[in-house]
Simulated assay, not measured.
Amino acid sequence: MKRSGPLYTLLAGLLLALFMLSLNATTGTGSSSYGGDAPGTAASSPATGQGKPSPTPTKSPTPSKSPSKSPDEKPPPNADYAGRTDDDTSAVSLSLRDGKAIAYYCDGRDTESWLKGDVEDDGSMRLTGKHGAKLTGQLTGKRVRGTVDATDGRHAFTAAKAVKPSGLYRATTEVRGAKLDGGWIVLPDGSQVGIVKRDGKPAKAPRLDPRTGTARVDGDVVTARPVTP
């Protein structure tokens, strides 16, 4: 009868061990149900920042195109113009070709100036010559209105569109050993204003025959040609 004590003790130990194993198994299942994430569930967890709308990419501003000329914008038409200064002391003639201009200012005695430059699409122009000479003009319709600054001062002028033989002529040659440079402005009314320089010395130009473009200088025939830029 005394030997049954240890047997009971051993049996009680086995029961306790079974109970503890059962308890551990039950606790492990509970941990999986209520504890942290079970293995393999990380993919189902929301990623950091998930749920926030992605910023819309900002488009780079399209570079603005440089303003270009309209196909309708063209330089003023080729033409010649001639007229007198407002004080009626001198004459001015201009020749316009493909956006370029050449002009001649002359008082018919001792002052003259050749000028050249560009003509803008709006008909404005700023021409320059030797000794600081300049001409500022504006083409409007069939005339050029402006001012010319020469060695004898500033003069306002109006030059109307010229029809041949009116216009601007020039002759550069040599006569009896002297270098000759002559300029003529033939005005719409048929009158002429011009200067001929012999070796740089100015004098009133002889009359030019517009039909032939010739003039007599010191008894010799000189041929003048229409001036274009």
Rank of each mutant, 00 (worst) to 15 (best):
K69M: 06
R3E: 14
P53W: 03
C106I: 10
R176V: 05
T26N: 12
K65H: 11
V186A: 05
E120V: 08
P188V: 02
R154Q: 09
S31G: 08
L127K: 04
P206E: 00
T147R: 11
Y104W: 07
K179P: 05
T140L: 09
D121A: 09
D152N: 11
A101T: 04
A171T: 07
T58L: 11
E73D: 15
G213V: 00
P39D: 12
T27L: 15
V193T: 09
V221K: 10
G13Y: 05
Q138K: 08
T223I: 05
A103N: 01
A103V: 06
P77L: 04
K142S: 12
T89I: 08
S93W: 00
P67Q: 11
D88R: 15
R109G: 06
A160P: 11
L7F: 04
A17M: 10
P57G: 11
T89F: 07
A38F: 05
L21D: 11
S64R: 15
Y105D: 05
P61M: 02
A47W: 07
K161E: 15
D80C: 11
K69Y: 13
T27C: 11
R145P: 03
K161M: 12
K130R: 13
R97H: 13
S93V: 08
G40D: 07
T48W: 15
Q138D: 09
R170K: 08
F19Y: 13
